[in-house]
Design a protein around this nucleic acid. Structure first.
Lengths: 247, 247
DNA sequence: GTCGGTACACTGGTCTGACCAGTAGCCTGC
DNA sequence: GCAGGCTACTGGTCAGACCAGTGTACCGAC
């Protein structure tokens, strides 16, 4: 027989639990409203500060939002990757997760997304990709910011074609964190135009592979491109970690 | 010219900002203590409820922990994937993610983890895997619960060998959510003993591949095993989504 | 009728002050 | 030297108050 360590359960925690349960179980849908703090205080039988601390926790988790003065009460939000992004970012800054791990993870996700996209793409999807590629082509002459936006859009289309929201969200988060980590270094990159040209050519190649339903090819191209573009920012000692994924 | 939407900045948010800044900048290291709430109240020049809401947010982010009665004050915690785990869990349970997507994602993660493990494993890692496999073997006769625990441990060792915390955490979360979704169905599974035997044989095979540094083989085995074990719970119409990952 | 403005009831954000249970460390009394 | 209690603190909770801001219902002017 073994005993569990016991920690006192705070009142606000049980409030959080109940509301969270109502949200994840679907009893409270996004867009719906919670009762006002004073009403919750009565329903839960606790003081207002307890309710407020519970709402703060839920708000930090991006599950609800409350605006002063709104008589409809706090709003239940749709599940969003914002909280995931924040916690991953924090972890990345705490150096338990370095650029190498992030890049590794991104190669895995991006590669899989491309593989799935190549296998599952419909004609409409291909049209969407053509459009996205076209915006990138236009972006080249409009400056780096514009090009970068089009690039992100292209990746999002691919992720969407893979039809897996987890893939979409994780990739988005990891991409964001990677960019934040190296953005200062990117600022100083010279000859951006030729970089953009190369990047554009790569995307065209990927699109060809996807059009040909060549999943492995698309995946390999995607991973190789990530490696080529970002490996230089990874400490040399950790680069071998990335190599196994390139085959 | 474009304008940004403006949101009022709450007092507790600025308190959170400052403390968070102190933590990520390293001015406050893990294990160190924050002043007591009443002291913070003076330093920040705000009321105690404001301080408490700020601390709640930081506590929800797993950055600090406070225990009543401790005269040393709230403790600064080391960065941990716990917050990442929670937000990922919440997102994965959000309705638009079904078993098919989860399983797909798990095949991707597990496959990659096995591939990396096979390429990066040291002799010590192999010993650890041997031990884990041995516990599984013993678990067969000790009932399903025990076996299942040993199984999870085996997977955790593999994830750890892959040396990527993101992989470890994501896999853990996705595995947990998958199990939550089908646990009721698993309860009714008959002939558990033969299932455990088959599962055990599969792990032995995986271990062989890893020992042989055959990354692709290990990855393929892992993905196939997931498919074989869980595909029956996926709606028949969505099973083709999983197929591309098996090659 | 529509439109603009205004009053009101209510919201969340914040502060004050109070009480409680629990902790750590000191400080007795042996 | 040490066990036991004392004390000064901690965080958790509550009650009550005030404020600035919001949405709505009402109302008067057109």
């Amino acid at each position: 027989m073994r005993f569990e360590p016991v920690a006192p359960v705070r009142a606000y925690e049980r409030v959080v639990e109940q509301i969270e349960q109502a949200v994840v179980s679907g009893a409270l849908k996004p867009g719906e409203r919670l009762p006002s703090e004073r009403e919750l205080m009565i329903q839960f039988g606790v003081g207002r500060s307890t309710i407020r601390e519970a709402l703060r926790v839920l708000q930090a988790a991006e599950m609800i939002r409350s605006r002063p003065g709104d008589p409809r009460g706090p709003e239940v939000l749709a599940a969003s990757p914002a909280a995931l992004h924040r916690s991953m970012h924090r972890l990345a800054r705490a150096e338990h997760v370095g650029l190498a791990e992030l890049l590794q993870f991104r190669m895995i996700l991006d590669g899989s997304a491309h593989l799935l996209a190549a296998e599952l793409r419909t004609e409409d999807d291909l049209t969407g990709l053509d459009t996205a590629l076209e915006s990138m082509r236009e972006g080249v002459s409009r400056g780096y910011a514009e090009f970068s936006r089009a690039d992100v859009a292209f990746h999002e289309v691919i992720a969407r074609i893979s039809r897996n929201p987890l893939l979409v969200v994780s990739e988005e988060v990891v991409r964001g964190v990677v960019l934040e980590l190296i953005e200062d270094k990117l600022e100083h990159a010279s000859n951006r135009t030729s970089l953009m040209r190369a990047w554009l050519a790569h995307h065209a190649e990927v699109l060809d592979a996807i059009r040909a339903a060549d999943g492995d090819g698309a995946a390999r191209l995607a991973k190789q491109a990530l490696y080529d573009n970002y490996a230089e920012y990874v400490p040399a000692g950790q680069r071998p970690l990335l190599a196994p994924l390139l085959r």
